[in-house]
Design a protein around this nucleic acid. Structure first.
Length: 462
RNA sequence: UCCUCCUUAGCUCAGUUGGUUAGAGCACAUGACUGUUAAUCAUGGGGUCCCUGGUUCGAGCCCAGGAGGGGGAGCCA
């Protein structure tokens, strides 16, 4: 075992004048012919520790190998710094270069790079301050999600990634097959014979775990899923990925109001968790990218989210119709400009409910007026729609009628309908786009920069 | 998928009305400097001007097509 101390621990240590071993990657080196200053980072924290090396004590060849990007093991004394920029530093006694990084070809520099360039070197960008901060935050948010639900008595359910259902209705799907695409087995009528395929039927990558999540909720009570989802939409925006992670809680005996309460509580919990556990990363992102980041996060936690119905929102928006490119009218879906207006108008998150049934999914519970459904969308500052959810239709007859109206094949969904057939109950749930949450807590503006290896149309590198 | 902008050194960008040998800052290399903080100073090397075709005596610059990327919109989370 190669024992060493994490830089995060050293920087918060009060115990100086002791020998330590650190391992990490060189961010910068500067100095003169007598002394070299090496900023070393090991990923445990955004800050570097300064290594001070008296040039005469080390072979010239070794010093030459210490360049930006190289990986070092340093043994030395942790001491109070003589310089101004840091409280502590390490006086190097031994330096071993684990892996040099050729200075002429290593693409990362001391100075800033554009996000676009770093996307092209996604395999190296975790070594930057920015992506170190983003990916540490990503871990904290994932962990906080599990902690939040676990503490509330939710069970984590694993829904399938390969699905035999093509009626989830959330978007275009990626096909999963082992057939020879150049020469697939055919039926007599010329169509593809999926009986010959691996699963002996047509299969896809999931677009949502919701329907399977409902099955679990109607046995375990409170459940959540947290896993990858896939959409083969040709979406080219800073808010969409072809592969993204989604959190989908599903709760038996919750109505739409309970659903909203949970969504609001969860979002506030997660944001508070980031403030409590990742402040040094947030401070960096706040200073470098978005001066409002921390203030915006705090403002969202402080006050209740504004809740209003779709119909009420239309009334608010109609008064502003003159300034909208798309005029609002009851029955049409809200455009981005309308969502943005509402978030600005109410100066914080907005939860909209009671949408017209014709613009929402088949499984949403119909209101008694016959026109609206108990859907909810949570609109957030900075990013727009972060959550979509609903109370589910629990009446078998209403559900099947709606499915017929929307041309959803009943036969294939019989397993789903069985929940309404046998021991149906009021229940509700929602989907939180993990990367959208990440945009909010990092201040990043492009979703490709909060996913380690983003998949978008025309791009599946690494 | 639609609209729009961009593509010149490793990176970020200038590049005049179409005119001789395409520039800067940073990075990198070498040197100077007794503790630096995106160190500083000096010197140096470094180019498929995105690709293909066209117009022209002459194209980084004009035209057509294509590729890649950004922003906006739609689809949504």
């Amino acid at each position: 075992m190669l024992l060493h101390t994490k830089i995060a621990e050293l920087l918060s240590s009060t115990e100086v004048d002791r020998d330590v071993t650190v391992k990490g990657w060189v961010r910068t080196k500067r100095g003169n012919k007598n002394v070299a200053f090496i900023a070393l980072n090991d990923g445990s924290i955004i800050h570097n520790i300064q290594i001070v090396a008296e040039v005469a004590k080390f072979p010239e060849e070794l010093m030459k190998e210490i360049t930006t990007g190289a990986c070092l093991c340093v043994k030395g004394a942790l001491v109070k710094s003589q310089g101004q920029g840091q409280s502590m530093e390490i006086q190097a006694k031994e330096i071993e270069v684990y892996g040099p990084a050729d200075a002429e070809t290593f693409p990362l520099q001391k100075k800033g790079h554009t996000m676009e360039f770093l996307r092209e070197i996604a395999h190296l960008r975790p070594r930057t301050n920015t992506f170190g901060a983003v990916f540490r935050l990503r871990h904290h948010m994932a962990f906080a999600i599990h902690r939040f639900f676990n503490d509330k008595g939710f069970f984590y359910v694993h829904t399938p990634i390969i699905t035999g259902s093509d009626a989830e209705g959330a978007g275009e799907m990626f096909h999963v097959t082992t057939m020879d695409l150049k020469n697939p087995p055919k039926n007599p009528d010329g169509s593809i014979n999926y009986k010959e395929d691996f699963f002996e039927k047509e299969t896809n990558l999931t677009v949502s775990g919701q329907l399977e999540g409902e099955l679990a909720a109607m046995a375990l009570g409170l459940i959540y899923t947290f896993g990858p989802t896939f959409r083969a939409e040709n979406s080219n925006t800073p808010r969409h990925l072809a592969e993204f992670w989604m959190i989908e809680p599903e709760m038996a005996f919750y109505d739409i109001n309970d659903n909203m309460d949970l969504a609001e509580e969860m979002l506030k919990y997660l944001i508070q968790y980031a403030l409590d556990h990742a402040m040094s990363d947030l401070e960096f992102l706040n200073n470098m990218y978005d001066k409002e980041l921390i203030a915006r996060m705090k403002s969202v936690i402080e006050k209740p989210f504004t809740r209003l119905t779709y119909t009420e929102a239309i009334d608010v928006l109609k008064q502003q119709n003159a300034k909208f490119e798309f005029k609002v009218e009851w029955g049409t879906d809200l455009q981005k400009e309308h969502e943005n207006y509402l978030v600005e108008h109410f100066n914080g998150p907005v939860i909209l409910t009671g949408y017209p049934k014709n613009i929402k999914a088949f499984y949403m519970k119909q209101d008694d007026d016959g026109k609206t459904v108990r859907a909810m969308d949570v609109l957030f500052p900075w990013i727009g729609e972060i959550i979509g959810g609903s109370q589910r239709e629990d009446n078998l007859e209403k559900l099947t009628t709606r499915m017929r109206e929307m041309h959803i094949p009943e036969k294939e969904m019989s397993w789903y309908l069985d929940t309404r057939k046998f021991g149906s109950c009021p229940h509700a749930g929602f989907g939180l786009g993990f990367e959208r949450l990440m945009l909010f807590v990092t201040g990043m503006t492009n979703i490709r920069d909060v996913m380690p290896f983003p998949r978008t149309p025309g791009n599946a590198e690494f």
